[in-house]
Amino acid sequence: MNGTPTPSRQDENDPDDCGGPIRPSRGKDVDVAGSAALLGMSLPMDRAGAIAADLVKLAERVLASPVQPGFEDEPADFRKAQR
């Protein structure tokens, strides 16, 4: 062990512990409502909760894909891939 946190340290009983895979948990509705508030928008908490749940599931799916960008990959590479 070199001190690097690993997913196994996640506390299954603590929904706010994000040491492992991303999953819905307490407080993410507040984060979403806060993001909107930073932009001057008011978001009802029930709507924020629904958006948070969707986002967490979406991020989990996307980040679990076996295809992931490399360190040097950047958005402009799409235009190169078109050629």
């Binding site: 978001l43 948070a52 986002l55 950047e74 958005p75 799409f78």
Partner: peptide
């Protein structure tokens, strides 16, 4: 409203994946 809360890193991740997936 959902777009207001997309983490910037997730949006950029989607853009970075575009070229890779097109190549595949």
């Amino acid at each position: 409203q959902a777009g207001l809360a997309t983490p910037a890193v997730l949006y950029l991740h989607a853009l970075r994946m575009r070229g890779l997936l097109l190549e595949k």
